[in-house]
Amino acid sequence: MSNSVIAVEALVKQFPRHRALDGISFAIPPGVCVALLGHNGAGKSTLMKLLLGLTLPTSGSVRVLGEDPARAALTFRRQLGFLPENVIFHDMLTGTDTLAFYARLKGEGSERCLGLLERVGLAHAAGRRVKTYSKGMRQRLGLAQALLGRPRLLLLDEPTTGLDPMLRQEFYRIIQELRGEGVTVLLSSHLLTELEARTDLAIILRQGSLRAYGSLEELRARAALPARLRVVTQEPERLARMLEGIPLALREPGWVELECPVEEKMALLRRVAQLGADLVRDVEVQLPSLDDVYVHFGH
């Protein structure tokens, strides 16, 4: 794909003691939100550094926005926004001052800073010293600096750590808006379920190799994990007998859980629905979650 925002070919990064990335290849089209998944030490942060040109690949190639990030002119980096993992901003400066510093480095005026602080919900604390900020507020300040200069590609390393659920929602709303503007977003996270509805593609790394890459639907299909039907019933024994041949994942007093391949779930649902109101009180369908897919590929 020549119009890929990120194109990585047979990328290897060897450190003296270990191989952080072991020949990975993938390409990311513009305007999508990609989740980068993997344990600590799976190579996520190394990959981000390579994409930023902060470290050189041992072999293989990296193209970001059509350029080699390690050799491109410095101005190339104006098109990128980055939020490192665990960044602690300088304590003594105010939120506005900190953001204005980064704005100047990106060759921007400080006019947009207040607007950005508003966007991440920090306008009320703009004049306070960063020292007094909570972890979530610092994280939002980090996001604000990543948005400086209208980047075409955002690289966010664990962006939602330390955010409460409300702020996380807000964070993903901002990401969604950016995607609407055509910005490509690559974000790593270990909170998988929250990524589910919000990412187009997922990359799963394990010990430096690429275990899976694709849309969630594709990954689900490839993992061939079963769907689960939880049936609420007064008579689990009788229900189990009636549905003989269908694997029972769990049997508890009051409900049973059935497993079936995802593509057969409608057939099973119809069968269960015909069993009559006295036997089947309620049915809940659980599709394999990103968590399940991740566990499947990541281990």
Binding site: K49, L74, F76, P84, V87, L105
Partner: peptide, 14 residues
């Protein structure tokens, strides 16, 4: 150690 160096180096700064 604070992570700000990595951030700084990702800016258009040599």
């Amino acid at each position: 150690e604070r992570g700000t160096l990595l951030l700084l180096l990702a800016y258009p700064v040599s």
